[in-house]
Design a protein around this nucleic acid. Structure first.
Lengths: 121, 121, 121, 121
DNA sequence: GTGGTCTAGACCACC
DNA sequence: GTGGTCTAGACCACG
């Protein structure tokens, strides 16, 4: 597991954690039942508060990416490929909707957006 | 000028104002030297705080979308077509960069993103 | 609004808060757009931590009972009678399922359960 | 004896053990003086900690469901039908009280609860 | 050892 | 003033 925290980013730390880990699960880099580092361990290594890590872990559990066994630890959920895709689409669609709203507000045409994406990808 | 404020959105109100007005300027819906409503007037009509309107106007000025004449009011800047495009691109590129980072983090391929955009546009 | 906190209960404080407030909303004792006390105020009055109150408020928002306006406060959601019933049923069904599992495990017949309920209601 | 342990349940494992075994005793599925498996045996078969099994056995003894003979093992208590019913009611009443509190807090009428129970039983 | 809950502070953006 | 985020501790139940 590889996490990079930016303290200068405008994104809250717990969300950075959530996005990176969920991304790794979606991409299959973290296998089912993989044991996440203990909250205290992760907090110490990333030099952030225990509570911040916990918040990220909670968010991951709420979305179904991981499951918690109190007293044992947290583990990557056992997801089928279809479930992974479904989770991914849920997250992507939510964001995409807002993005498109913004680009349309700025008067961008569909093909302009596509061109920009190809440039930035 | 047509502004819609959502109090329940997670976006700060001043930013909603900024985005909508800058969008209208970019799309040419607000002509050069168009006189923006007085801060107090806008605040009253939109039922928001004067401070919030002021912050949005300031942000617009900082980006070069409007200019202020003390005692007279605020007016849409006299921008060439090239300048408008430049301002737009500046805003779009900044956002696009972040968006692509997110979509890549979720393991989306370029063509998947393009498909989704065509769907959501 | 009337809240009673039991420090001796086995239920976490934040859950007691959640259950009591959601119950009052469901019963119509708290009207739409009713302004909940500020987190700090509630914490002081109930003599509990700000974070504990916040956790309860968050849970209420996640279930759709209240909405948050950052910088303004938290307010009871504008729910139709049908939506209230739907929210109630969601909560009740979840619990009822577990309860029945337990009573069946103890060998109770349906009519025994009904008798007991009439006695305890 | 048939025990199923769920590691992902929010219920502690020792309590799952307690509830299932006490339920089987109450339902008469385990006869008087039936010899419970040795703690180490049960722990190994269920793939849980010895400490956890011990805690469940202790809880069963505390409630009077089983008795321990040092060096021999644990056995189902010799309970009359009345005693069984009494034990059962003790457990049921304790839970029922809390349940009804919750359902009343959500504004459910007696007949609504009965209807729901018939549906979920 | 683990996570679950709670506390008493703090700084920030927004209004 | 408000909520949003974060910190650095603490005690508990569970295994």
């Amino acid at each position: 597991m590889n996490i990079i925290i930016s303290n200068t980013s405008d994104k809250p730390i717990y969300q950075q954690l959530f996005e990176q880990i969920s991304g790794q699960i979606i991409k299959g880099e973290l296998p089912s039942n993989y044991s996440l580092p203990a909250i205290r361990t992760a907090a110490k290594e990333l030099r952030i508060s225990i509570i911040t890590v916990k918040k990220a872990w909670e968010e991951l559990e709420r979305h179904g990416f991981i499951y918690t066994m109190a007293g044992k630890g947290c583990f990557v959920a056992d997801l089928s490929k279809g479930e992974v895709t479904s989770l991914r689409n849920e997250m992507v669609n939510e964001k995409m909707e807002k993005d498109m709203e913004y680009y349309k507000e700025l008067g961008l045409e569909l093909n302009e957006i596509v061109d920009l994406i190809k440039k930035h990808y």
